[in-house]
Design a protein around this nucleic acid. Structure first.
Lengths: 154, 154
DNA sequence: ATACATATAATGTTGAAACATCTAATCAGT
DNA sequence: ACTGATTAGATGTTTCAACATTATATGTAT
C-alpha cells in the first residue's frame, strides 16, 4: 500500500517529507515483524543486534563501547543489554587485561547456536523484500547513505 | 557515510539485509534530529505526529481510533498521548454525540500556533535531504511502498 | 609525582512503550 | 427485546528507553 493510504495523508509538503515519513513508517513496519519473530526466542531486536555484532568478531572479544558504536540504535544502554544476555548465558563478560576500565564481551556457544537458529528466519524477512530487485535495494541503500552524508557536512 | 562505515559491518547476507539495516539506521537518525528539535518546544515526536494529523482534519474533529490508525507508530497509546496534549491545552476532547463510546479530538488555536512555529523547522530537516533529488526521493518512496505491499499479500 | 581532564562502564531515576485488562456503548442475530 | 460479540477508549502493570550521575581507570601536562 502506498504511504498515502497507510497513514491516510493525501498531501505532503515535499517529496522529502513524504520520504521521511515513509522511512520511519517502513522502519517501524520492519521492526514489528522482528519483535514478533524474536519473542518466541525470548530475545529483543536490540539483543539480537548485539549478538550479531559479537558473532562478527568471534572468537575475538569486543569492548562494550565498540559494541555501542556499531549498534543501529546509538542510544541503547549497552551495559544493561549485556546484563540481559549474560543472564541468558548467551555472552561472556570479563575485564579487559590491557585496560581495566574496559570490559571484554564474547558470544558463547549457546549464543552462536541461537543465531544459527535465527538466521533462516531473518533471511526470510529480508527476502520478503523481493518485490524489488537486488539492484533497486542497493540503489536505495546508496541514496540513504547520501542523505545522511550530506547532513554530517553541514 | 556508508552504512558499512556507520555500523562497521563489512559484509551483509544480501542487498536486502543491507537495506533493512540501512532503513532502520536512517529512520533512527531522522528521529534523533526530531527529538532534539522538539525538546525545546516541550513536545515529543509522537505528540507532534498527533497534532499534525489533527491539523489535517481541522476544523473537523477526529476520533481517537482514527488518529491511532494514521500514526506512524501504530502501537502508540493514543489515549495517553492525548492526555498529554490536553494538559498542555494543545487539543480539546469531548465525547462524540453520535457514538458515546467514541471521543472527538480537535486541535486548539494554541496547537495550531505551535505547529506553525514548527513548520519551518521541520521543512528544514526535510530539505536536508537535498543531497538527493525530488525524483530520487519519490523513487525511494515508491520502492518502499512496493516492499510493504508485497508482504501484505503473503 | 601530582593535578586535572578524559574514557569506560555501571547505576539511579524518570517517563514512556508494550501489553493486557477493564468498562461502557453499540451492533448483529435470533 | 435479549444475548453474545465487537468496538472504543481508558487504565494497570511491567519492562525498557532516555538521560544524568557516579565510580574507577587511564591519559596528559606541568
Amino acid at each position: 500500500m502506498s504511504i498515502e493510504t497507510d497513514i491516510k495523508q493525501k498531501k505532503f509538503r515535499s517529496p522529502y517529507q513524504r520520504l521521511a515519513l515513509n522511512l520511519i513508517y517502513t522502519s517501524n513496519w520492519i521492526q514489528y515483524q522482528q519483535v514478533d519473530g524474536f519473542r518466541e526466542h525470548d530475545i529483543t531486536s536490540q539483543q539480537y543486534n548485539v549478538l550479531r555484532i559479537l558473532r562478527g568478531q568471534y572468537p575475538s572479544p569486543i569492548k562494550v563501547s565498540d559494541i555501542a558504536e556499531r549498534m543501529l540504535d546509538k542510544n541503547s544502554n549497552t551495559s544493561r543489554l549485556i546484563d540481559k544476555l549474560l543472564a541468558k548465558k548467551l555472552v561472556d563478560r570479563k575485564s579487559c587485561p590491557n585496560d581495566r576500565r574496559a570490559v571484554d564481551v564474547v558470544i558463547t556457544e549457546a549464543g552462536l547456536e541461537l543465531l544459527k537458529k535465527l538466521d533462516p528466519v531473518v533471511d526470510e524477512w529480508d527476502n520478503n523484500m523481493n518485490a524489488i530487485t537486488h539492484e533497486e535495494a542497493d540503489l536505495i541503500s546508496s541514496l540513504l547513505d547520501k542523505i545522511r552524508e550530506s547532513k554530517n557536512n553541514n
